[in-house]
Simulated assay, not measured.
Amino acid sequence: MTDAAMDDAAGLGGLTVGAAASHLGVTVRTLHHWDRIGLVRPSARSGGGYRLYSAADLARLHRVLIYRELGLSLDDIGELLDAPAADMTVPLEHQRAQLVERISRLQAMVGAVDRMIEAARTGILLSAEEQIAIFGERWKPSLTEVARERWGDTAQWAQYAERAARMTPEDWQRVADNVRTLEQDLAAAKRAGVRPGSAVADALAERHRASMDAYFDCTLSMQVCLGRKYVADPGFSAYYDAIEPGLTVWLRDVIDAHARHRGVDPDAATWV
């Protein structure tokens, strides 16, 4: 409420419902409702007998708007407006505590959104030094930028960013440890002559697919596409074959056989 509005009300003997609504930024219907429930009733009268809002009425309306902005119900607002000044302290202190709690929640939400934005931009919320410490000397921090350029506009990248935003360095360490264990088990199975399609190979394929859940929900069809990517991409091939010669092709065959056992035709697999 502006000082000019108060002056207008005092100087003109009061404001009409329409003028008061305009000054307050509310609707005429709202003022009629507040009048009907006895929250704020216009107390002045025009020469023609029309009810007008006096300066005191407008001040009361202004308090209603403040209390409503604080989230109080109209019933609570009515009690506060008519309560002695001493009785106003307790409900207002309670409302203040609720507002502080709400601000805290909103600040936490802002922080979470900021982390999601940063994760979507960078791919991982770890410094280059932290990445190497967790994923090993062979890890190249630039790979996250390459991945973002390739898949940054996909639903899977968005899902990954949402999950990465919640992950701590300790979470990433657990992911890295699980991947290293899986790679060692894959290499050992390859050396032992485990055949794609066997029960042992199928279990390893399922562990591989489950390892993708740290990043996004990976379907059997998507896993087949990943297996093909490993073989076709020199970077992936070099990575897996450095663990165990021939591991890349063997892993692709293991993934294909597992998908076939689960009713997915590897030759018709798509990224869905």
Results as ranks from 00 to 15, higher is better:
residue 200 V to R: 15
residue 98 Q to K: 15
residue 144 T to R: 12
residue 67 Y to S: 04
residue 188 A to H: 10
residue 127 S to M: 05
residue 131 Q to V: 04
residue 78 G to Y: 05
residue 78 G to R: 07
residue 58 L to E: 02
residue 66 I to P: 04
residue 195 R to Y: 02
residue 78 G to V: 03
residue 94 H to T: 15
residue 62 H to N: 13
residue 57 D to F: 00
residue 91 P to Q: 11
residue 139 W to F: 14
residue 60 R to M: 08
residue 152 G to Y: 00
residue 75 D to I: 07
residue 145 E to G: 11
residue 62 H to L: 04
residue 89 T to Q: 14
residue 68 R to L: 07
residue 100 V to K: 15
residue 203 A to D: 12
residue 144 T to V: 06
residue 73 S to H: 09
residue 185 D to P: 09
residue 56 A to F: 02
residue 165 A to I: 00
residue 93 E to H: 14
residue 69 E to T: 10
residue 91 P to H: 11
residue 183 E to K: 03
residue 159 Q to G: 14
residue 98 Q to H: 14
residue 151 W to Q: 02
residue 192 A to L: 11
residue 60 R to Y: 05
residue 114 D to C: 03
residue 106 L to H: 11
residue 171 D to Q: 03
residue 179 V to G: 10
residue 77 I to R: 00
residue 157 W to P: 02
residue 117 I to F: 05
residue 86 A to I: 10
residue 70 L to P: 11
residue 141 P to E: 01
residue 165 A to M: 00
residue 189 A to Y: 04
residue 117 I to Y: 02
residue 178 N to K: 12
residue 61 L to N: 00
residue 168 T to M: 09
residue 134 I to Q: 06
residue 60 R to S: 10
residue 113 V to P: 07
residue 144 T to M: 14
residue 85 A to T: 15
residue 161 A to K: 01
residue 94 H to I: 13
residue 62 H to F: 02
residue 158 A to P: 04
residue 102 R to C: 02
residue 71 G to D: 10
residue 89 T to A: 15
residue 157 W to Y: 08
residue 180 R to W: 06
residue 69 E to Q: 12
residue 200 V to Q: 14
residue 132 I to W: 01
residue 117 I to W: 03
residue 121 R to I: 05
residue 187 A to P: 07
residue 77 I to E: 04
residue 122 T to Y: 01
residue 116 M to Q: 05
residue 97 A to M: 12
residue 152 G to A: 03
residue 76 D to G: 15
residue 139 W to S: 12
residue 172 W to H: 08
residue 202 D to G: 11
residue 59 A to R: 11
residue 145 E to I: 06
residue 96 R to T: 07
residue 196 P to C: 09
residue 145 E to H: 12
residue 60 R to F: 04
residue 121 R to A: 10
residue 154 T to G: 00
residue 173 Q to G: 08
residue 59 A to P: 03
residue 94 H to F: 10
residue 137 E to N: 06
residue 182 L to I: 06
residue 122 T to D: 01
residue 201 A to V: 10
residue 135 F to D: 00
residue 93 E to L: 15
residue 183 E to D: 12
residue 109 M to H: 13
residue 177 D to E: 14
residue 81 L to I: 13
residue 168 T to D: 09
residue 65 L to D: 05
residue 170 E to Y: 03
residue 124 I to R: 07
residue 161 A to N: 01
residue 59 A to E: 13
residue 167 M to R: 06
residue 201 A to H: 03
residue 101 E to R: 14
residue 174 R to H: 08
residue 136 G to R: 05
